[in-house]
Amino acid sequence: MYGAVAALEEFSLTIRRGEFLTILGPSGSGKTTALMLLAGFVAPSKGDILIAGESVAAVPSYRRDQGIVFQSYALFPHLTVRRNLEFPLEMRGMAFTERTRHVDRMLERVHLRDFGGRMPVQLSGGQQQRVALARALIADPPFLLLDEPLGALDRNLREQMQGELKSLHREFGKTTICVTHDQEEALTLSDRIVVMRAGRIEQIGTPEDLYDRPRTRFVANFLGEANILENPQFAIESDATQPSGTVAMLRPERIRIVAPTAQNRNGAQHCQFVTGIVDDMIYAGPLRKYNVRVGGSMLIVREHVASGQQIYQCGDEVRLGWLRSAVRFVAE
């Protein structure tokens, strides 16, 4: 609680040993508060926090055996890379020769063997990121907390570091809890994702489960783009019966766009087809995105760019088709 405001409500979560779990949500959803509770920077107003079956709710952060990486990396600017890595070992009373051996091995593992003598300001963003991760891992904590770890990086470097994070997680096998608002980052890195909304858990599952089988409109829209087929001017065909209180949802990449005169492929008996008019076409490198008006509804279609592919322009009549099994039903 922050005064009369409950930042988290009914938050109950079990984290499996060795998994990479991401807490995902928009600003104000409670994800950062959850991380602060796990880190010991905030005490819970009620409830408990258990690690390996023992309560740590009253244990201060500096007494918890954990590694933390902040969005700003929080490297000591007046210390070299090597001294940054030595610091947590020195605080634990490790002898100099043993510290040196640990630091050498860690610098090798994060591909910074020749950078030990540099100051943080002399490193690129990606290199600083690796130093922060190395410092969090070097004391061999049982779990690792990541607070928006890639938020300060540009897109290309962020994608590169996602691969590095996955590789380090596989190598060290640390239980890792990551907080982010970046959907792509969560889908790429996680074994499981916790989607937060207004201080509550909206849904927990694997990346595939949450993307392909969202339970609510919020999860469907937050994890990628979604066509919410609310009151469409055509009957929705599906292999499943629509539960009461739900609306149909279709991912843009599940829709195939063709000319209205194109012949149906094999398996057309399992598909639904509608005719519409292209309202807009957006070229985005490997992808081409269409907004197609079907009656009073606007459907988003996303296809991978390929040679010889027919390109449709604004005003073109097209036919859209999708498998009836691709339709999902989400709660309001």
Rank of each mutant, 00 (worst) to 15 (best):
Lys166Ile: 08
Val42Ala: 08
Gly315Ala: 03
Ser244Arg: 06
Pro26Phe: 13
Arg217Thr: 11
Ala284Trp: 03
Gln71Trp: 12
Ala226Asn: 11
Ala198Asp: 15
Ala268Val: 14
Gly125Cys: 06
Gln269Ile: 14
Asp48Glu: 15
Gln183Ala: 08
Lys174Trp: 10
Arg217Pro: 03
Arg83Asn: 11
Glu230Ser: 09
Val121Asn: 14
Arg288Met: 04
Leu323Gln: 14
Gln183Thr: 05
Arg17Trp: 13
Pro214Ile: 09
Pro142Asn: 03
Pro232Glu: 07
Ala74Ile: 07
Val103Gln: 03
Arg130Ala: 05
Asn221Pro: 01
Ser307Thr: 12
Gly295Ile: 02
Ala132Lys: 00
Arg99Leu: 05
Glu237Asp: 03
Tyr62Ile: 01
Asn156Leu: 11
Val294Glu: 00
Ile277Phe: 09
Ala262Gly: 10
Val305Phe: 03
Gln127Ala: 08
Met161Asn: 05
Asp279Gly: 10
Thr188Gln: 07
Val292Cys: 01
Met106Asn: 01
Gln129Ala: 05
Lys31Ser: 04
Phe115Arg: 14
Asn264His: 14
Lys31Pro: 03
Pro26Asp: 13
Ser29Gly: 05
Leu144Asp: 12
Val195Asn: 13
Ala58Glu: 11
Ala74Glu: 05
Arg324Tyr: 08
Pro286Phe: 05
Arg213Gly: 03
Leu157Ile: 11
Pro77Gly: 10
Asp104Ile: 04
Leu299Val: 00
Ala198Ser: 13
Met161Gln: 03
Met281Cys: 13
Phe87Tyr: 15
Gly151Ala: 15
Glu9Phe: 01
Ala268Asp: 15
Ala284Glu: 10
Arg105Met: 11
Gly28Pro: 08
His304Thr: 15
Pro77Ala: 06
Ala6Met: 13
Ala34Phe: 04
Thr216Lys: 14
Tyr2Asp: 11
Asp212Val: 14
Ile177Ser: 07
Thr175Phe: 08
Leu107Glu: 05
Arg135Cys: 00
Ile277Asn: 02
Ile201Ala: 06
Gln272Glu: 12
Glu237Trp: 02
Met119Thr: 00
Ser307Gly: 09
Met161His: 01
Val318Met: 08
Ile282Leu: 10
Gln162Glu: 14
Arg324Thr: 07
Ala43Leu: 01
Ala326Trp: 06
Pro88Ala: 07
Met1Arg: 11
Gly117Ile: 02
Ser12Leu: 07
Arg302Ser: 13
Gln160Val: 09
Val5Trp: 14
Leu144Pro: 03
Ile257Gln: 06
Glu54His: 11
Pro252Ile: 03
Ser325Trp: 04
Arg118Asn: 02
Leu165Pro: 04
